[in-house]
Design a protein around this nucleic acid. Sequence first.
DNA 1: CGAAAACTTGATGGGGCTCAATGCTTGTGG
DNA 2: CCACAAGCATTGAGCCCCATCAAGTTTTCG
Lengths: 266, 266
Amino acid sequence: MGTPATLHSRADTRATVIPMRRAESANVVHCPTSCQTCSLREICLPAGLGPHEVEQLNGIVHRKRALKRGDYLRRAGNPMQSLYAVRTGHLKSSVLHEDGREQVTGFHMMGELLGMDAIATGKHACDVIALEDSEICEIPFADFERLSRTLPVLQQHFHRVMSREITRDYGIMLLLGSMRAEERLATFLLNLSQRFAARGYSSTQFVLRMTREEIGSYLGLKLETVSRAFSRFQNDGLITVKNKSIEIKFPERLRALMGECASTRQ
Amino acid sequence: MGTPATLHSRADTRATVIPMRRAESANVVHCPTSCQTCSLREICLPAGLGPHEVEQLNGIVHRKRALKRGDYLRRAGNPMQSLYAVRTGHLKSSVLHEDGREQVTGFHMMGELLGMDAIATGKHACDVIALEDSEICEIPFADFERLSRTLPVLQQHFHRVMSREITRDYGIMLLLGSMRAEERLATFLLNLSQRFAARGYSSTQFVLRMTREEIGSYLGLKLETVSRAFSRFQNDGLITVKNKSIEIKFPERLRALMGECASTRQ
DNA sequence: CGAAAACTTGATGGGGCTCAATGCTTGTGG
DNA sequence: CCACAAGCATTGAGCCCCATCAAGTTTTCG
C-alpha cells in the first residue's frame, strides 16, 4: 500500500515550473498551491476546517520558502515571527548545550508544524536544518493568533497540535529514560513507519534522510551503537538495511522488541 | 533571601477557615481565595492580565480541590475536561510503558499548569499524583478556550505556557540524551533551586518532596545511582544532604559540573 | 512500637562508549 | 566521465559508567 517513500525533493517539485503569483518580500516566494488544494490539508493545520475557514487560513500563509540540504530554517536565538509547516522534504531540530553537545529533538516531515518552542520566549529554542532540499510554508504568528480567535475550530486544532508535541516529547523521555539501545531503535523505526503510512507512503519501505549520528543523537546513543543495532536487526531478519534504505520485514516482531528487555529484567 | 521552602501545605491553608462561597459540583469545593488575591497570580495563569481580565478568568476557575499525599489527580486515559493549576503542594506526572515501566515526566509546584498533554486526544496522557497534601485549582477547558478567544492577552499567555512546556521537554531530552549521572543530578538540583527562588523561597535550602526512585526515574537513572551521586556531592562539599533536605553550598560549582564531562571527553 | 518503605553502601558484571581501522557512497572538479 | 576527496557507515577490541544484586541502616507511618 502506498508508494515507496523515496521523496527525492528535486524530482517532485513540479511547482517550480509554474510561474509565481506574487512575492510580498524578498525572502518569501509564493507558489500557486493553496491550502485548499494542498495534498497535506488533512494532515496539516487545515485539518478539520471547513472550506471558508481554510480560505481564511490560506490568506495569511506565505507559501513555499525553498531550502537546500544543510540550510538553516531557523537558528536558536533567532527572533520568532512565524510558525512553519513542512510542505516537502525533511528537517531536523536540535538544541545545543553550552559546551557544544548537540541533542536532536525531532525529525520533521511534510505536514508537520514547527516553531512552537519559540512562542514562550519569542526566540527560537532550536536550530532547524533541512536534511534535504525542502519547501516550507510560513505562517506569521501574530496573524495566526488573531485568526484563531475568530475561528474556534482553528484555535482548538492548534491547541491539539501543541499538545501532541508535548505528548510526543513524553514518549521520547520514556524512550531516553528507560529503554535499551535496540528498543530505542525499534521504536524509532516504527514511528517513522507510521508517519510515512499516514502520508500515503509505504510503511515498510522508506529512506532515512538523516545520518546514523543524527539518529544516535535523537535516541541518546552513539552512531556506532546505532549501526550495530541495524546490523543486528538485519542479521535477525527483522529488517533489510542498505545504507539509508530500510525495509521492515516483520513489523510485529519489531514491535515485540520494544517492550522485550523490560519483561526480562524483573 | 526568601523563606525556607518547607511547604507544609496543611499549615498554610488559612483559606479553609473562611466559609465557602458556593459549590457547583460535589467534587469541586470552592474556597474564598480568588485569582485576584492569590499570591501566585504573578506566576500562574493570570500573569500579565489586567484587573478586569483576571476577574473574568477567576469567574471560570473552580477553586481548591484538595488532594492527600498519594492521591491521583488524574490517571492516564481519563477523559480530559479541565486544566489544573497547583496552588499548594507538589505533584508528579508519569507515563507508563505497556510493560509497566514508569517514566516520571515532571515534578510540579505551586503556580504550575497541568493537563496540557491531554488536549490532543481528550484523554490524559500521564498519571498525575500528589507527592504531598496539595491543593489544585481546576479550569474547565472549554470555558477557558472560549474566554481566551475574547482575551488576547490570556490567549497569548496560554500559548507561551504551552510553549514553555515544550522547551522544558527539550531540555530534559538534552539531559537524558547526552549527560552523565552527576551532570543530570546537578542540573536537576539547580532547576529546583531556581523554581523555588522564583516563588520567593530559598534557592539554597529546600526539601525534596520526591523519593530517590522518583528522581531516578525522572533523570533516567536508578535510585542507587542517585543516592551515590548525592553522597559524592556531599563528600565534595558541594551540598549537604540530610534525607530529603538539601542545602546547596556552592551553586556555581554545581553549575560548572553541568558541562564538565563534555569538555573532558573531546 | 513494629512493619514497611526509603535510603545508603559495597561488590560485580554488562551494555554501550571510545578508539581505531577499513570500506562504501556521494559530490565535485579536472 | 572519471578520479579523488570527504563524509558516512561498518566492524572490532577494550574499557568504564552505571545497572544489578545484596545487605544493612534509617525513617516514616499506621
